[in-house]
Computed example of a mutant assay.
Amino acid sequence: MEQQVHFLTLATADLDAARRFYVEGLGWTPLLDVPGEIVFFQIAPGTVLAFFEAAQFAQDLGTGPARPEVSGLTLAHNVGDRDAVRALTDRMAAAGGTVLTAPEEGAFGGVFHALVRDPNGVVWEIGHNPGWSVAPDGTVRLS
């Protein structure tokens, strides 16, 4: 198997809140939006993030009506400077996110970051780490 992930699918108890947060709050454009079922966002070349209505997600997995939970997971977005961390944190909060950690110096590697939980419990780290970069071909460089 190639070292790639093409879809990340998260169960959501409130699909409308997820859509509103990502479309209105983050300014993302859905790749495909099936009201009441699932919404897909292209997040990188060859990679899609999907929010699947929880009961239908459980049915798809064959686990019945129990709501699946996401744990031990964060999504991260690196921005160009500290002011961008603050601005995006404010925008996410205005769109229904909950700020868990206000913008601050991180404990590791010179990062300045904030943590914001989306309306479905997914935690985003918004960070500025001058030691990380993304090349034009999409390769992430860690230093």
Rank of each mutant, 00 (worst) to 15 (best):
V23W: 02
V111L: 07
P45G: 12
G131A: 14
L75Q: 11
G27E: 08
F52V: 02
I38M: 14
D33L: 06
G96Y: 09
F21H: 07
G127F: 13
L10H: 09
V122W: 01
R117D: 08
I43D: 01
A84Q: 15
G36W: 01
D33M: 05
E104L: 03
G106V: 01
E105G: 02
S143R: 15
V48I: 15
P136S: 08
F57R: 01
H77S: 10
F41C: 06
D16W: 02
V140S: 11
A18Q: 05
G121K: 04
G46W: 07
F7P: 04
A18L: 05
G36H: 06
T63E: 11
A93G: 02
R82D: 13
P65T: 14
V85I: 04
A11G: 10
V122P: 00
A13R: 14
A18Y: 05
Q42G: 12
D90I: 00
A58M: 04
A58K: 02
L15E: 08
F112C: 03
L32E: 14
I43R: 02
P65C: 00
E69V: 12
V23R: 10
V79Y: 04
R91A: 15
Q42S: 14
N129P: 02
E104R: 15
P35Q: 05
P103T: 05
V34M: 13
V116M: 10
D83M: 09
D14W: 03
G138A: 12
F21K: 04
Q4Y: 08
T29H: 10
D16C: 01
G80K: 12
Q3T: 06
G72K: 04
G106H: 01
V85D: 04
A55M: 00
E24I: 04
T89N: 10
G138Y: 12
T63R: 06
V116H: 07
V140T: 14
A11L: 02
V48H: 08
M1F: 11
